[in-house]
Amino acid sequence: MDLGQINPLLLLASLMVAATPILLAAIGEAVVEKSGVLNLGVEGMMITGAVVGFAISVNTGNPAVGFVGAALAGAALSLLFGVLVLYLMSNQVATGLALTLFGLGLSSLIGKPYEGVKAPSLARLDIPVLGDIPVLGPILFRHDPMVYVSLIIVAATWFVLTRTRAGLILRGVGENHDAAHALGYKVVHVRLLAIAFGGACAGLGGAYVSLVRVPQWVEGMTAGAGWIALAIVVFASWRPWRVLLGAYLFGGITVLQLNLQAAGAAIPVDILAISPYVVTILVLVIISLRGSHGAPGSLGRIFHATH
């Protein structure tokens, strides 16, 4: 084994790329859960976003259009979930699972013709002056635009949730939907918007996997990233900046294990390959040891207004 082959600078730089899909999906899901809805369909929306984003980019030659399409596809799929849980009051856990199963089928149906096709690449955005800073420049300021978009989304989510009236209403709806309803807020409308936002973010995250991270379409390519995003929301206690921290920690582990594999570490490849999942379980255990802090009061409960 030659650990010297692993360049710490490149490792840190690729960490951000590895973390971005999970970050996008997790920040969306955090907003959905803050409004009191548990959407377990993240994996299904991500993989649909991945295939739609890829297909549109290949056909238009423009990855930016692909990302927009992926966000729309994720949102459309999430609205299907929204109608079921909000208007038809179906069980959120079961409906989320249905969304994942449906999304996996839908994506492989759409993706068949695109297997082995190459996607147009997303141009890297070298931020002029900052990118030239030694050490920090290559790590932080020489990425594709989506990395920065994801950071802007996190910041905007934090701002809206904690500093605006709209955020207060959303949190109120999630904390106690009966009280929010009694105050005259439209619980169902607020939740539908939150769900659509979550779907759009998951779609973007999926498209990032197929257009930047890999970049190719492979069936089932998100490989549990949506589920890991769900775990990160719990890890983050539903707080935007901690979602960022969680996603980057996780991205770090992923990149490190890939680098160790490439460097031919003495640890068997199989152990390295399962490490992201095992670490997720360990993190969940540690979080639950602390007790669940900050879970929205109405999370997963069905809201039915009698009048």
């Binding site: 038809l88 409906t95 199963l101 449906f102 996996l104 089928g105 839908l106 492989s108 149906l109 068949k112």
Partner: peptide, 17 residues
């Protein structure tokens, strides 16, 4: 396509719920 059946099964669960 094989995936059409997978989607078909997913749809079934949706309609049921």
């Amino acid at each position: 396509p094989a995936a059409a059946i997978q989607m078909f099964q997913g749809m079934l669960l949706f309609f049921l719920l």
